[in-house]
Amino acid sequence: MADIAIFCFLASYTVAFALELLRLKKPGRLGVLAGSVFLAAGFLAHTLFLWNKGRSAELPPLLSSSQDWILVLAWLVIGLYLFLVCCDRRLSIGVFLLPLVLVLVGASYLLEDRPNQLLEPDVRARNGWAMLHVSSLALGSAGVLSGIVLSLMYLLQHRRLRHKSSTSPGLRLPSLERLSRMNWWSVVISVPLLTVGMGTGLVLLLSGSAAPGELTLGDPVVIINGLSWLGLAGLFGWMLLRPRATGKQVAWRTLLACGLLLVTVVGLSVLTSSGRVSSRHASHSAQVSERGLIATGGHR
């Protein structure tokens, strides 16, 4: 169990995704069953991997490293997928969600995996705040990912219906009505969560968890992520102010805002971990707040 590597569940998810693609061409119960087995096996390995990492670092996986944070995000997405598949086995969600999971798990290879050895006793006391910071960012990001997938599904279903194409037996999508509702909720839930994450990060920063001079509001990661968050918050405001907006308008805007945020989060995580972007988020400081920021790719 201790030997479980990222490759184990990455391979399982890849096979499950390949089977999903195969289902598009050749739908059948056997494909669904085989896909579910690989997915469940991957999810189990994924869970055990995070459990082991958390135990060895003596921290929750969300706090242990930026690699683990992104793996937790992927784990949440897979959990959501499994839940949706259990609700309706015929829905073709995997073909949209699994590529994102593969990108996240693949990106984790590029992120630093150093445990938080510099944790100081006074900062440990702030673990509650740090945990709230990173978990709300992780949950909010999972909502963002859901928003991307739901928007894609909506646009695809809308296009099919407008072009009067028959339902493909291998690609069953929920109705526009349901997709629109779920999309709305994904944004409405994820934006406040991300805001809480940003806010708690700010509290940690201002309360002195970060070493003076090491982390500033002028940090490029803080600025870029802040702008992405503003984009999403703008979408949130627009949705609340325009309740009669069409599902297609919401889907396009969600796709753009959430897509931008996802690319920013993953891209900046990779760039800061590789040292190509100079930021205090890239370094493992002695402050847990900063480790939280690194883990989230610098959401503030």
Partner: peptide, 10 residues
Amino acid sequence: GDFARGIFDR
């Protein structure tokens, strides 16, 4: 079955 259900949930 093929189209209206793609638009409406219920």
